[in-house]
Write a protein that binds this DNA or RNA. Structure first.
Lengths: 206, 206
DNA sequence: TAGATTGTTAATCGATTAACAATC
DNA sequence: TAGATTGTTAATCGATTAACAATC
């Protein structure tokens, strides 16, 4: 009995559910329903029930879902019931903001170290971090067992840096550079490019 | 004859094609094929041909696509053959980086003004911008005909600010706050939340 | 002409939704 | 019990892919 393969698109919605539920926790909500959650997220209640049911029976007929219980379950499923150490490569304007971003820690992630290859920057402080030489990435990553890297390097060097961190055992890359990178299928790559979102919207605008 | 409705999912891929093609322009590539483009993006060549053919016949059998011609066409389709003025609301660490980000201008967007509601910040400089009082948003947006707003405000005030800018005629919101906002269907909302991407990846990791 | 690649069709595949029995 | 909401099935809907004629 092969464990049923959960579709990627379902996995992609779970963090959205978790985020909405954590806001409900902050608001001291104890119970919610697929209907309410769906209304908040613009997703049908049927889809939410179907997605969740892939992982277990978390609700009660007639009542709904216990918010903190569902939060706990989703954190387990997404493996964010622990904190993942990450490193950041590239400390330009964007990298600086990523390093300072306060939103990682409460949600399961922590920036451990930041790197740059510019000799002018190496050794300087960025927030609480001392910028390390990017040429040390290989050794450091392997030694500290880091699995997640965020890239905020110039477009032209993104692939090169990606190749190097992958060689050092990294299996997840969050790429802020405006380019696609190629990686073996065992390595997960996600992208953040605000312009892609903007252009998607202007398509519909005059 | 109703103009055929292009699926949202197709529209969402066009900016990706445009981005890859612009990199090819920089590399002085004159011609490409759906095969090559697909390889770079991890998308099947059939899908690329099908997507593009929704908008016209841009290629030549046996040859492929002229890169700069296709760039020109995609810019027209996405309405980024002009520059869209935008404003940014919220100048914390994240907002500061968004304001300084150099990637908007070459790709069809420009930050015109930045706003915050913190009296401590109003009047201060951020890069080349003087922070304006967020209470002026309503008047300013309407007067300058701004249609696009980027939100980098605290989660708790995102909905409130969104409501106000929508009232002032804004039809596109790029939301960096970690929450979903509700808006009339004529208003386009896109989200950027790095943690959602990270959690999507850790699902697959031990 | 031979080789290559588009644009498009039809088939396949997968995701969403509607509906409802089960049950709290 | 009556009302509400889940979990799940089957039907619908939509997206992707394989294949190939057209043609450069």
């Amino acid at each position: 009995m092969a464990p049923v393969k959960i579709p990627d698109i379902v996995v992609g919605r779970l963090p959205l559910y978790l985020r909405a539920l954590e806001i409900m926790v902050d608001d001291n909500r104890e119970i919610t329903s697929s209907q309410e959650l769906g209304d908040r997220l613009g997703i049908s209640s049927a889809q939410i029930r179907k997605d969740l049911s892939q992982f277990g029976e978390f609700g009660k007929q007639g009542t709904g879902y216990n918010v903190s219980f569902l939060v706990k379950k989703l954190k387990e499923i997404l493996h964010v019931n622990k904190t993942w150490p990450m490193v950041l490569v590239g400390v330009g304007d964007l990298g600086r903001a990523v390093a300072d971003y306060g939103g990682f820690t409460p949600r399961g992630f922590k920036v451990e170290t930041v790197y740059d290859s510019d000799p002018q920057k190496i050794g300087k402080q960025v927030g609480t971090f001392t910028i390390r030489d990017a040429s040390r990435l290989g050794d450091d990553l392997a030694k500290n067992g880091i699995k997640i890297v965020m890239l905020a390097v110039p477009t032209a060097s993104a692939q090169d840096v990606a190749d190097r961190v992958i060689k050092a055992g990294v299996t997840a890359i969050l790429c802020y550079s405006s380019t696609s990178i190629s990686a073996p299928s065992k390595v997960h790559v996600e992208y953040i490019d605000p312009v892609l979102h903007l252009q998607r919207m202007t398509y519909y605008m005059r």
